[in-house]
Design a protein around this nucleic acid. Structure first.
Lengths: 209, 209
DNA sequence: TCCTACCTACCGAACGGTAGGTAAATAGTC
DNA sequence: GACTATTTACCTACCGTTCGGTAGGTAGGA
């Protein structure tokens, strides 16, 4: 996870990126509330006061990590997806790419999922707004499938949440050293989810199982 | 949520049930770490020390709630499901019933999902063991489908987690006063998930969408 | 006379955060 | 290049607050 320069954080160099990466990793493991600022400082080999040189506060750190996760989702999933004309192909791309982002696991995208509760109201609103944009993007693509007569009798909200559920849940059970590769899993999830929604999906050749 | 008498908690009357229900509700809203023992006591209209008359500790309270959730899952989903001979029908029943349990929402089943991290190692092991039993139950049923030649080329682990993902994610977006009823959603999730896994599902008549 | 169901008052530990300092690097001036 | 001013990157030491938990008491019912 590389943090790009932004107006909201005045430190943009490599050390700040390291702070964010380390924090994301620990928060992912222990949860936000159970992670103390000292935990993060210790992992970085500095003191708590030293860490406050880089962050403005604990929730601001969380918020910045989440913002990065949402940017990542936009940059790597939504922007490229919008260039795909065919709705079915687009949806398959979104599911597989998002799944890869979760398993690649620098943490930011995943932290997004669970820890929003800890944000301040205004931070929460900002994050929720961007999450909702992603949901709407999925819903629109699904409705496009329906318009082409390809969708089964499934509510598009339920379907969109089903996609998000499957992808995000990956972070809870995926093990890099397990029997299945991230690509295999991503492909299978995309396939099963799409097939469940559509009247007749072009069934992809499935990799070894 | 009604807590049944058990050997591990010495108080079994109505007040203890009220304690557990209230605690579950608050933990569900705020998260376990962010919920203080005083929060729960306040909601019950007693002091913190008064609450300790009913509980042995904060994690024990969480553990007891989770144990109840797992019992609920066993009693209401797995036990009746085992009586269903047809694997497809059985899987549909499991998905729909589990989904209803989540949306009915007295909290215990849902808390199970997110807060296991806060348990002590031995408590964590106990909960994980029972969760794994549920996963295995799903996997076996899915493999039964495969044995009958009904399954598409999907890994049964991926499929089992997909079911769990869809059902548990419900708790994050289901709104009782929303446009969709719990039954509708449960039915659609069961239908879309099953259809995604199977070669040819008996497509149920879907309710209004 | 016990037991149940609480209470007040408190403890030690951990928390997020800050005040105020310092050594080393960097930038500006001559 | 030498000297100074400023900034960076931390530090020690501490603050007020909140936390989970407890000791010891009490009012009321069986």
């Amino acid at each position: 996870m590389v943090v790009r320069p932004s107006r909201t954080s005045e430190h943009t160099d490599g050390r700040t990126a390291e702070v964010y990466q380390t924090a994301a990793k620990i928060i992912l493991q222990k949860g936000y509330d159970a992670t103390s600022v000292s935990d993060i400082a210790d992992a970085l080999g500095i003191t708590k006061a030293g860490l406050y040189h880089y962050i403005r506060g604990k929730t601001e750190l969380l918020y910045d990590i989440m913002k990065y996760g949402l940017q990542e989702l936009d940059r790597e999933v939504m922007v490229p997806a919008r260039k795909i004309a065919d709705a079915e192909e687009r949806l398959r791309f979104v599911i597989a790419t998002h799944a890869n982002l979760v398993t690649r696991g620098d943490g930011a995208v995943t932290i997004l999922v669970d820890e929003a509760r800890a944000l301040s109201p205004s931070q929460y609103r900002a994050v929720t707004r961007l999450k909702r944009a992603y949901l709407e993007f999925l819903r629109e693509t699904i409705e496009e499938l329906r318009a082409h007569g390809k969708l089964r009798g499934v509510n598009s909200t339920v379907a969109a949440f089903a996609i998000i559920a499957n992808v995000n849940w990956l972070s809870r059970w995926y093990q890099p050293d397990g029997g299945l590769s991230a690509q295999e899993i991503a492909g299978q999830i995309a396939d099963a989810t799409l097939f469940g929604l559509m009247k007749q999906g072009k069934q992809r050749s499935l990799q070894a199982l």
